[in-house]
Amino acid sequence: MDAIVTRNLSKVYKGLGKGHHKSLDSLSLTVAANEVFGFLGRNGAGKTTTIKMLCSLLKPTEGDALVFGESTRTRQARRLIGYLPEQPYFYEYLNPKETIAFYGKLQGLTRAERDRQWDKLSELLDLREIATQRIKGFSKGMRQRIGFAVALVGDPPLLILDEPMSGLDPIGRRMIRELILRLRDEKKTLFFSSHVLGDVEQICDRVGILVKGKLVRAGRIDALLGSAVNPVEVICTGLAVADVTRLKEQAELYRAMEELHVFRAATPEIANEMVRQILAAGGKLVEFNPLKETLEDYFMREQTQDGTVRMEGAIQ
């Protein structure tokens, strides 16, 4: 059974008078069980709105969403979800142990079950040393660990994480990344939004890209990146000035160091033709490197291809 299914999920925020803003536009998406799904998009693209609707904090204007076959409006669905909001906030006068106990009570766990949860989660998230310290005064990284612990109370099969690495230092990010990988190994389903695309590329099985409230792409990362026509770097030496000038008409001269020239051809076909010309002109081929597109490159391309989205501050 799929972990998440959304059908034409839409959210319109109504303003005063006739003003309204469509934050999410007919999102139809499926996330399989035991999958790690990265939900990408710029600020305001509709990621948090989607997550809030999955967690029953917002009501959809249209469409519906199911979690393991249960409508997200039901308590049963919420029992299956562990939710980590962006920059999680908890009662500051409670300590981590009391916080976990509080959420355990909200889940209807018995005292013995709550104690077991604390033992497990404090071990997993290294909370023992700060068990009796008030949350007030905790750093962002410590709060994030508590947020993860709260999301894991009751051992839900689906974790929905909103920007889990946002604002963390490199050590904090690494800890969260390793935790996500560990949860993936435990066969949890993870659905998370993130701006840290390098981490998403390492962790996720599939990604979805939202642009202005619309899902423009969804699929396996290797398939999405594999479908692109990748540029090729051609490094050569021993060419005359006239030959270099001729090659510059076919490809970008990326770098020139004494006799060494680095070209970037837009397609492998152009690169092959350039190699033929280099050898014919008596030059020497040093390297032929097909460049692998990163998720970040792909993401940026999707944003600009949309036609309506432009990079802020881009040189025209």
Partner: peptide, 14 residues
């Protein structure tokens, strides 16, 4: 306002 509600309302409670 303090966003403490997010993690509470998303729990399996009415």
């Amino acid at each position: 306002d303090k966003r403490t509600l997010y993690t509470i309302i998303s729990q399996p409670m009415h």
